[in-house]
Amino acid sequence: MDNYLRDMALFVEVVKARGFRSAADAIGIPNSTLSRRITELEKSIGLRLLHRTTRKIELTEAGQIYFERCKRIVDEARLAHEQLGEMLAQPSGVLRASLPVDFAVTYLAPLIAEFSRLYPGITFDFDLTPRRVDLVSEPFDVAIRMGQPENSQLIARPLATLTPYLYASPGYLKLSGEPSVPAELEQRECFNIQPAGTWTLHDGRQTATAAVGGRFSLNSVGMLRRLATLDLGIILLPEEIVADELASGKLQRIMPQWHGTPQPVYVLTETRLLPAKTQRFIEFLRERLGR
């Protein structure tokens, strides 16, 4: 049935173009192939549809009746196909995403709320645990990650670049004083996700390093922020992560001329062939985050 409908559509194109060569050029198939298919169509229905000459084609009486019916059927089929395509293109279904906890809660949540209002047909299943989900073996559509992608087999699309700055609470600064150069950070309580580490800082002209550490070993950015608001030390994080604490005055930026190494934010997928729900989500985030 599909081949029969295809040949009916080819017949309609030949009649509308008033010739095989013009129709073949418009459709993008060889002229000989097109002529053979119309001949096969005539044989299959047992009717002569066209009078062929070296210069033009003309419809037979039966061909005229057949053309009118074919055109109606083909037009209806094309309309149904377009409507089906539009329906399938509408974002719907469950969007399963793995998101970095603090970045999602602080920065992505308002964007996700906006996206959900734009596409009411999508429901959401978010994993905000610190673990790195496996997009190949687990049923996730997309993952957002900070830092350079680790798995080269995944498709990575840049979303944004976040620059970390130094922050501390007014209470901590009152107790310990505000450092003015990177070297002074080594005498301060500094929070790292790792037990100890080196902060690389830039001021636009030079780069400096500071071996920092403290009494707390953390694997939670949220806990790190909370301890900083409780006057316990200095943190190095993107402004987007500490926006709420800055707005409330619980944290303030220090050593403003210095900043950490910018961190890329990527959206990862297993494949480039994405359903509409995932495509729209990625496009929306890239637009809002400025990439």
Rank of each mutant, 00 (worst) to 15 (best):
A97V: 12
I73H: 09
R72Q: 09
T53I: 03
A97L: 05
Q90L: 15
P91K: 09
E61W: 11
T53H: 06
I65N: 08
E61G: 12
F67P: 02
P110K: 00
C70Y: 01
I57R: 04
E61F: 14
A97Y: 03
F115W: 07
A113W: 03
T60K: 01
D75F: 11
I57Y: 00
E82C: 01
V94D: 12
R52H: 08
E58Q: 14
D75E: 14
Q64V: 07
L95Y: 13
I73N: 08
E68H: 12
P91H: 13
H81Q: 04
H81L: 10
L88G: 03
E76P: 01
T54S: 14
I57F: 05
L95I: 07
E76I: 08
M87H: 14
E82R: 05
L111I: 07
A109Y: 14
L111W: 01
T106W: 02
I65S: 14
I65T: 09
Q64S: 13
F103W: 13
S92W: 14
P91Q: 06
A77Q: 09
R96C: 03
T106V: 14
L88R: 06
P100Q: 05
R96I: 02
R69H: 06
P100E: 03
Y107Q: 02
P110R: 00
F103Q: 01
L59C: 07
V94S: 05
H81F: 08
A62V: 04
Y66V: 10
A80S: 11
T54F: 07
G85W: 07
